[in-house]
């Protein structure tokens, strides 16, 4: 089975999480702790870049549900960018586009924060 990796960087005061590989029940805890670290550091403006993600399951999506309320309560948001069509399809199927900004480019997602 392919692995999963999450790396962090920052761009213009926005935390970027780059996710790579397979995000499923098995690997979801890694993303969870990445989010938890950002929340602990009070970094509430987050963009998740999906460029290198090749698979996501419902459990992977669950991680996003677990943090969104807390982050928005603190004036931040999780914005999602650069999904492969296959990945977007899963988000779309489960109704995520009504709740999350999903953008084509990471830069567009960062800009969205700038406009706040």
């Amino acid at each position: 089975m392919e692995g999963f990796e999450v790396t962090k960087n920052e761009n213009g005061g926005v935390a970027i999480l780059n996710v790579k590989g397979y995000l499923d029940a098995h690997t979801a805890p890694a993303l969870e702790s990445a989010f938890q670290e950002l929340v602990d550091e009070k970094k509430f403006r987050i963009v998740v870049n999906f460029t290198e993600l090749s698979y996501i399951s419902s459990a992977g999506l669950g991680v996003f549900m677990g943090f969104i309320e807390d982050i928005r309560k603190n004036g931040g948001d999780i914005k999602l960018s650069s999904m492969k069509p296959k990945i977007f399809r899963v988000f779309d199927l489960l109704g995520f586009p009504t709740l999350y900004d999903i953008l084509d480019e990471e830069s567009a997602a960062i800009e969205k924060f700038a406009k706040l």
């Binding site: 969870e32 459990a59 999506l61 669950g62 549900m65 489960l94 109704g95």
Partner: peptide, 11 residues
């Protein structure tokens, strides 16, 4: 828990 939260969109 995670699977349900993702699938049902509950937090």
């Amino acid at each position: 828990a995670y699977s349900i939260m993702g699938e049902m969109m509950v937090n």
